[in-house]
Design a protein around this nucleic acid. Structure first.
Length: 654
DNA sequence: GGGACAAGT
DNA sequence: ATGGGACTTGTCCCA
C-alpha cells in the first residue's frame, strides 16, 4: 500500500523532470509482488529462518486438510480393540499431549499412538484401561517413534510409565542428517521428508466434537503428530542408512537418549549456603573495585558496558585503540592486557570483569536453578545442538563451570556429594591427541601412546630437538599449545598470539611439528580434500558434518571451512567415543552397582555420585569400561582414564 | 534480537 | 591494512 503511493508519487515527479538519458520508468516494475511461495519456504528452511518461516506458513495453508482419523480410547474394551486392530510390529508413533507449562513441571494429559494408518488418542485422567496400552509401550517388536524422546522419557517416568526400546527419535535422526541446522522441529522434518504441513489439520475455532469433548484442537494435533511420526520412521531410517549413519543412530544415539534422561533426572547437589556466602564476599570485592576503577577513570560509568568503557579508555584517557569490532573499539581481555602497559585502569577492568562474570553467571544464578522438589541442579543435556557431535548443556550449563582462579575453584567446591556419598570424576587423558594418532597412524605418535609416554614432553623433544632432561616447563607448554593448535587447524597467527611468540617463530614450530609427524599433515590434507570432494567430513563411527564453506569463493570462508574439516573428525570422533563409554558404563552400573549414579558429562569427563562403601568398586568399573571403549571401537592407541574422588567437585577433579 | 564478552573442553 | 584455532552457553548492554 505504501509502495503504491510512493510509486505514484514518484511517477508524477519523474514526469515533470526533463531527462537527458532515455530512461523509461514503468512504475509497475516496482510493485512488490507476492513471494514465490514454494521457493521462499524452501530457502527459509534451508537457511534455518524458523521464525520467519512460521510467520509465512499460515498464509500458505493448503486447501486440503491433514486431519487424521482418530479413535478415542477411554476404557479397557476400546483399548483392547485398538491394540488388536493394529498390524504386528513396525513403527509406533507416540506423541504426548502435555498440559501447558514448562516441560519439567508439565503433566501428561494424554498420549496419541499411531501406526500410520491407525491412530488413537488416550486421555490419561483415568488409568483403568491402561493395561493393553502399556503392553504396547513395552512391545519390543515395535519401534517407538518419538520426537524428543528424552523429554518423553522424563515425563513418562514422572507419571510412572515406561517406554521400552527400540526407539527412533525423529529429532535426533534429523540431527544426524543435518547436524549444521539448529532447528530440528517436527514441523520442519515432516514438511521436508513427507511434504506434510503439520498443524493444519484442525480448523480455526473448531466446534467441539462429541468425541473430543475437551481441548479438541490439541488432541487432534497430537494425533496428527503421532501419525506423521509413524510415517517418518521408514523414510528417516532409509536416509540414515544411505549416509552410513544408521549404526551410529541405532547403537549409539538412541541408547544414549535414556542415559541422558537418567543423568538429568539424577542431578547434581549444590551447596547453596556456600554460594550465598561467596556472593557476599564477591559483592564486597566488586564494590571496592568499582571505587578504584571510577577513581582511575575520573568519574562514574557502567563498567559492564563495553561501549561506555571504550569511551573512557579511548576518549577520556586517550589510550590508543588496539583493534576494532563491528560496532566500535574492542575492549576484550587481550586488548586490555596490551593497554595495561600504558595505564593502570585496563588491568583493573580485566579483574573486575572476571569476578563480575563469576558472580552473575554462577554464584548468583546457580542457586536459582535448584529444583525445589529434589533440591538438586538438573541440567539439560542436549543431543542435537553441537554440529560436531558433542553434547551441550543448558539451564544451567554445567559444562563451563570455572576451574581456574581462587573464586572459580570456590564455585566448584559448591558442587557436592550428599552425606555418605562421594564424587568420582573420570577424565579421558588427551583423547583428542590420541584420536589424532589413530586417524593419522603417525608412527611416532602411535609409539608415544603405546609406551604411555607424556605426549607434550615427547612433542617438545621433537620440536626443539632436545633430550628430555633439556626440556623446560615453558618448552613443554609451547609443545602442548602446538598440539592443540594442530587439532583445531592451526595458523601461525593464532598460535603466535596464543604462546606469545612472533608469527615467524610460530610458523617454525608448526613446520617442525609436521616434519617430525608427517602423517599428521597427510591426515589434515586428506580431511580437507575429502571435505571438498564429498562435501562433508566423517568420524570413526560414521558421523557426518557437511562443510559448505569449503566451496566458498571467499578465502576467509574457505580457511574457516578447512579448519572445520581438520577439527570436526577429531572432535566428533572423541564425542562418538565418550557416548559409547557412557552407554556401556551406565549399563554396567545398572547391573553391578545400581546405587552409583552418573550425574554429568563434560566432553571428555564423566562424573558420578557414589556411595562411599562402593567407591573402590566403582572406580575400577568406570576406569575399565571407559578404557575398554577404545579397544571396542578399534582404536590403534590405548585410552587412559584419570580418576579423582572427593566430597566436592574441586577436590574430585583429576 | 544481536553484539561483545567470558566461562568451559 | 587487517586478519586466520574448534565447539558451546549465559549475561549484559543497547537499539
Amino acid at each position: 500500500m505504501i509502495e503504491q503511493a510512493e510509486n505514484a508519487r514518484l511517477s508524477r515527479r519523474l514526469a515533470t523532470i526533463q531527462l537527458d538519458s532515455p530512461v523509461t520508468f514503468d512504475s509497475e516494475t516496482y510493485h512488490v509482488k507476492p513471494p514465490h511461495q514454494d521457493q521462499l519456504i524452501d530457502l527459509l528452511r534451508e537457511l534455518g529462518f524458523t521464525t520467519l518461516l512460521k510467520s509465512f506458513q499460515p498464509s500458505f495453508a493448503p486447501a486440503e486438510t491433514n486431519e487424521v482419523k482418530t479413535e478415542l480410547v477411554q476404557d479397557e474394551p476400546s483399548a483392547q480393540k485398538f491394540v488388536a486392530g493394529l498390524p504386528k510390529g513396525g513403527a509406533l508413533g507416540l506423541q504426548c499431549l502435555l498440559s501447558p507449562g514448562s516441560s519439567m513441571q508439565a503433566d501428561v494429559q494424554g498420549i496419541a499412538l499411531s501406526t500410520g494408518d491407525k491412530t488413537s488418542f488416550i486421555p490419561l485422567d483415568v488409568r483403568t484401561y491402561m493395561r493393553p496400552i502399556t503392553a504396547l509401550l513395552h512391545d519390543p517388536t515395535r519401534t517407538k517413534v518419538v520426537h524428543d524422546l528424552k523429554a518423553t522419557l522424563l515425563v513418562f517416568h514422572r507419571i510412572g510409565l515406561t517406554l521400552a526400546a527400540p526407539y527412533l527419535d525423529t529429532m535426533v535422526a534429523d540431527y544426524l542428517l543435518n547436524p549444521n541446522r539448529r532447528d530440528h522441529q517436527l514441523e520442519t522434518i515432516a514438511f521436508e521428508v513427507l511434504d506434510h504441513r503439520l498443524g493444519t489439520g484442525q480448523k480455526e475455532n473448531a466446534a467441539p466434537q462429541s468425541l473430543f469433548d475437551e481441548d479438541t484442537g490439541s488432541r487432534e494435533k497430537a494425533a496428527e503428530a503421532a501419525s506423521v511420526l509413524a510415517k517418518l520412521a521408514p523414510a528417516l531410517t532409509e536416509r540414515l542408512s544411505d549416509q552410513g549413519s544408521l549404526t551410529l543412530f541405532t547403537n549409539v544415539e538412541m541408547p544414549l537418549v535414556s542415559v541422558l534422561a537418567e543423568i538429568e533426572r539424577n542431578g547434581f547437589l549444590l551447596d547453596v549456603e556456600a554460594l550465598h556466602r561467596l556472593s557476599k564476599e564477591l559483592e564486597r570485592d566488586l564494590d571496592k573495585m568499582i571505587e578504584t576503577i571510577e577513581g582511575l577513570a575520573g568519574g562514574e560509568f557502567n563498567i559492564n558496558s563495553p561501549k561506555q568503557l571504550a569511551t573512557v579508555l579511548f576518549e577520556k584517557l586517550g589510550l590508543r585503540p588496539i583493534r576494532k569490532t563491528k560496532t566500535g573499539y574492542s575492549t576484550d581481555e587481550d586488548t586490555l592486557t596490551q593497554l595495561a602497559t600504558q595505564h593502570e585502569l585496563p588491568a583493573q577492568i580485566v579483574n573486575y570483569r572476571s569476578l563480575s562474570k563469576l558472580k552473575s553467571t554462577y554464584v548468583d544464578a546457580l542457586p536459582e536453578l535448584v529444583n525445589p522438589e529434589t533440591k538438586r541442579l538438573h541440567t539439560s543435556l542436549n543431543q542435537t545442538v553441537a554440529a560436531t557431535g558433542r553434547l551441550s548443556s543448558t539451564e544451567p550449563n554445567l559444562q563451563n563451570i570455572p576451574v581456574k582462579g581462587e573464586y572459580g575453584l570456590r564455585i566448584r567446591e559448591a558442587f557436592i556429594a550428599p552425606a555418605g556419598h562421594t564424587l568420582l570424576c573420570a577424565d579421558y587423558s588427551q583423547v583428542e591427541p590420541r584420536i589424532l594418532a589413530h586417524l593419522s597412524q603417525d608412527p611416532r605418535l602411535l609409539a608415544v601412546f603405546a609406551k604411555g609416554e607424556d605426549i607434550h614432553m615427547a612433542t617438545a623433544m621433537e620440536i626443539f630437538g632436545l633430550s628430555a632432561s633439556h626440556i623446560t616447563r615453558d618448552m613443554r607448554r609451547v609443545a602442548k599449545t602446538v598440539v592443540f593448535g594442530i587439532v583445531y587447524g592451526i595458523s601461525p597467527f593464532g598460535l603466535a598470539s596464543n604462546i606469545g611468540v612472533s608469527q615467524a617463530e610460530a610458523k617454525k614450530y608448526i613446520e617442525t611439528f609436521f616434519e617430525k609427524f608427517s602423517a599428521v599433515r597427510a591426515l589434515m590434507d586428506r580431511n580437507i580434500e575429502e571435505g571438498k570432494t564429498k562435501g562433508y567430513t566423517t568420524t570413526i563411527l560414521g558421523r557426518r558434518r557437511p562443510i559448505p564453506e569449503l566451496q566458498s569463493g571467499d578465502p576467509t570462508q574457505r580457511g574457516f571451512g578447512e579448519r572445520m574439516a581438520v577439527n570436526s573428525p577429531i572432535q566428533g570422533s572423541a564425542a562418538d567415543l565418550i557416548k559409547v563409554a557412557m552407554i556401556d558404563v551406565n549399563n554396567a552400573l545398572h547391573h553391578e552397582m545400581p546405587h552409583t549414579k552418573m550425574i554429568l558429562q563434560v566432553h571428555d569427563e564423566l562424573i558420578f555420585e557414589v556411595p562411599e562403601k562402593e567407591l573402590a568398586e566403582a572406580k575400577h568399573l568406570v576406569k575399565t569400561v571407559m578404557e575398554e571403549t577404545g579397544k571396542k571401537l578399534g582404536l590403534s592407541v590405548p585410552l587412559k582414564v584419570d580418576l579423582g574422588t572427593g566430597h566436592n567437585w574441586r577436590v574430585a577433579h583429576p
